[in-house]
Design a protein around this nucleic acid. Structure first.
Lengths: 187, 187
DNA sequence: GTCTATAGTCCGATAGAC
DNA sequence: GTCTATCGGACTATAGAC
């Protein structure tokens, strides 16, 4: 069970944090507002003051997840030379595929949420379009670069859903090969 | 609105068909049993005789979708020579990425369903493992072949969710390049 | 502005008649 | 195998305390 934590801090953050714990435990479909409120140490009404509906709470969680991923990508850029033309693409590989298990558990829940939330999808779509435009003008071989991003998405999805068939060794091979294709697409 | 259709046939099939229409219209999250029952021309109780819970109804829809996809892949094999070592991989590209818009609308709903249904995920996982074993022993370059399957998944997901950033032309480039990588991985 | 308590409403699920 | 009636849980709304 998810226990109430007498943590301090703004109620909004406590609620978000509690919701994350609940979602990680039972999934987005079985998330119950009463449970979240209790875990966050607020009343249900208090929760609904900050998030006027269940959907808006899940939406906020999803936003948080996306922001976190973007930070991971930014951080990963530091690992590559500024001269490396395929640096951004490689940072995506490392940043997205290197995330912790906790984050992946959340991924499944948010996939389920996103699939029914047009607003959220639009945010993600805009991000993808921007990313794609960059690729289209910077890469020498657009199609290869695009395939790298698609494969990243595919692998992330499989791992979020825990249906990836790869052995540890196979996964390492795949990541190595992705790096290679990333390089190929910039010369 | 989804209208009641006085179609004949077993109630179970009528319900499934009605549920598909409803899901295509409002999404899995907003599917209401009463609405499905009315559209299928049965009472809610009648519906719940065939599918004892909402989850089981959505699960049945998902199964149907997966079977349909497998048939598409089988059918696509006919388009390639039996001598072509990468025939199966290419059939996946054509079979999965060539599906009609109706089927894609369903994809989003079922992604949302699958993310919360461990039983269903297990079925899909077994399928992926079998597929992966085939790839591992047949392909000359396992990693490349795996990346093709990952990219297919990634593109299918994006298109199901309607967040794909590609222009028509870019998409065609990507598919062509996938075919090329499929060939590369078998020599 | 932030939160509690309570009341309202919707909808999935069950029980039992036919 | 299907229907009607009803229950009960969970989301939402509102009035008002601090």
């Amino acid at each position: 069970m998810v226990e109430a934590h007498a943590v301090p801090g703004p109620a909004r953050d406590r609620i978000l944090e509690a919701a994350e714990r609940v979602v990680a435990e039972v999934g987005a479909a079985r998330l119950i507002l009463d449970v979240v409120a209790q875990a966050a140490g607020v009343s249900k009404g208090g929760l609904l003051y900050h998030f006027p509906s269940k959907e808006s709470l899940l939406g906020a969680l999803a936003q948080r997840y996306v922001q976190n991923k973007e930070q991971c990508i930014e951080a990963a850029k530091g690992g590559f030379s500024e001269q490396d033309h395929s640096r951004d693409l490689k940072a995506c590989i490392v940043g997205i595929l290197g995330s912790d298990p906790r984050s992946k558990a959340m991924g499944a829940a948010l996939l389920a949420t996103a699939a029914n939330d047009l607003t959220l999808l639009e945010v993600i779509r805009e991000r993808l379009v921007a990313n794609n435009n960059e690729l289209a003008e910077s890469s020498a071989d657009f199609a290869r670069a695009a395939i790298v991003t698609l494969a990243i998405d595919g692998l992330m999805m499989r791992e979020s859903l825990r249906i990836s068939p790869f052995t540890e060794d196979q996964r390492a091979q795949v990541v190595r090969e992705l790096m290679k294709i990333a390089d190929e697409s910039y010369r």
